[in-house]
Write a protein that binds this DNA or RNA. Sequence first.
RNA 1: GGGCCCGUAGCUCAGCGGUGAGAGCAGGGGACUCAUAAUCCCUUGGUCGGGGGUUCGAAUCCCUCCGGGCCUACCA
Length: 677
Amino acid sequence: MKPRRILVTAALPYANGPIHIGHLVEYIQTDIWVRFQKLRGHRCIYICADDTHGTAIMIRARQEGRGEEELITEMQRQHERDFAAFDIQFDNYGSTHSPENRRLCGEIWQSLRAARLIVEDDVTQLYDPQAQTFLADRFVRGTCPRCRSAGQYGDNCQKCGATYRPSDLIDPVSTLSGATPEVRTARHLFVQLNQLHDFLVEWTQSGRHLQEEVANYLKGHFLHEPLRDWDISRPAPYFGFEIPDSPGNYWYVWFDAPIGYLASTQQWCDLHGERLDDWWRSPDTEIHHFIGKDITYFHTLFWPGMLKSSGFNLPTKVHIHGFLTVGGEKMSKSQGTFVMASTYLQHLDPAWLRYYYAAKLGPRLDDLDLNLDEFAAKVNADLVGKVVNLASRTAKFVETSGLSPVYPDDGGLFQQAAAAGELIAEAYENCDYSRAMRLIMELADRANPYVEAAAPWNLKKDPAEADRLRDVCTVALNLFRQLAIYLAPVLPRLAEQTGRLLNDPITAWRQSQIPLTGTPVARFEHLMKRVDPKDVLAMIEDSKPAEAAGQTPQFQDSDQPLRDEPIAETCSIDDFVKVDLRVARVVAAEAVPDARKLLKLTLSLGGDQRRTVFAGIKQAYEPDQLIGRLVVMVANLAPRTMKFGVSEGMVVASGPGGSDVFLLGVDAGAVPGQRVH
RNA sequence: GGGCCCGUAGCUCAGCGGUGAGAGCAGGGGACUCAUAAUCCCUUGGUCGGGGGUUCGAAUCCCUCCGGGCCUACCA
């Protein structure tokens, strides 16, 4: 087979936070693929970098009272340390804040200019006069202009789903400084991506560059209509690169981030005497991006557009994976499932996570669930019980004799496992690691009965059986070594240890096809510890916020809600009494069939006073559990006609929305109709 | 409302038109004692979500319904 030339990237982690186990899904997935390709004898390089620019970094550096460069340098050190500890081996790990990146951004920019893709337009945005910066949507909070719920982000309302511009918000507040933002207009630069519409349809819908469901998604959601212009500049101050021909404007972080792939490759080329064009402008190179589904849009539309316009290779394939859940739920800080890589390392072996992820990862975008019980069971049963056990039960019998000079008859076991190699390789190639792991474990399941039947511990007792003993162990250790080779992309350390044990380093997939004979066998050392569920629990405890883990109950409530939604401007008592809050009893409640969030409530204010209210609490409450209970409603709110009928008020509740909505109740004794003062 | 995916043994999943539906784990019984309470043998367990259709033949293809997930839209 002709060696392929393959360049692989994983998404660039943002320099605003440490690596956690959710990130690791991607870097491990990618690392396995790269190691597999290398083992198969292909030229393959794994390129990554820190993503360092943008408002968030600038703000954080300011808050911490230091320069951005200091911040990103430290974060990068942490990232690289964590990756290395998980055996994620990059060929080059760069930074988007590098001279190489600045140069390449300029080059691509010129290409976009030359292709007449860049236009200018005024953008009206909110500006924080105190922080002296324009505010991205998520840095503004205010009252939704449609449903009047407070504390909504600048682009859409969590409560009613309305979309609007940040300047439409009522009483907007900057989350950076708490100041009231001003409306300001600035000149922005845009890429007219729609000029590449035909190309993008062609590229996304053909050639298997994308998983099928991704291609369908793009077709249905973006490509069926003209693509909007992409705003790729930000006015100063902004931490990033200033646009050379547009002083005072900076490239938006999502412009320079993917170019970081090129820049990091450039660094690698400079270190290894290679040419960038051999990797990014050559029909002989494959480019594979691994990303999470959240950034699909950037990598499948903008990025190919940028590459196309500037004459670089297009991605051969963009491999997209889902998110990590833990125990079937989103990672949660309070539950201790938001586990940092560094916390994991304090308690558990990185090999375990690599194997578990591999056993769960398929070629699709499905979310991957880390179930902690399954994690321990699987690692212990598969790796320790089956695989490593093969070596630990036989190696010491041949410490003095070494492996037999001729590979003995094993009833075809080695040949069968060798033959399975191509299937396993195909599964790796297709990112179907769960299938690969299954196939490998099937082999392991056949190897242990062989040892059982041959009973080397009995042979050992009879000196006349010395040759037979050595043969049996030679078979067992060869079957073990085959597994170690097949698992090498996932478990590089096990492969190394196996190489040392049998005095023949594992460097190539094809070593799985020929039995190893005649080598000395080193003194056996433990290859892998079992998972102790206690350690898993300790890791979870360690991941809980300090206040949650404390023994004495302290009321250390998080400051997050206030940060999300700062306290509104002072109002007078007169303002307050304008709002007539009343206790009301829910006398009927039903789901609105066509609405995802709405329940239709009939509220009684006592007597025969009834109000119909549509409340966005469907995801949080069952209609049945509401009937009869007392709630607090805004009784003098102007009626509003909705698609499903007229809403004659609103019930008050706290929480960010969705299933996290908490209705206000009243203590016992209150009756419907009473005003809340 | 639209798109995609998934519903197969208690759990995780394989099988995706053709011998009586499988594996691992868990459960039950036995064996062994070399090995990290590992291993080996036997075994319990399933209307393959429901219903219709195509076919000589369907878990496997088509339709429909139910349930779950992810994404997206609308409505407030």
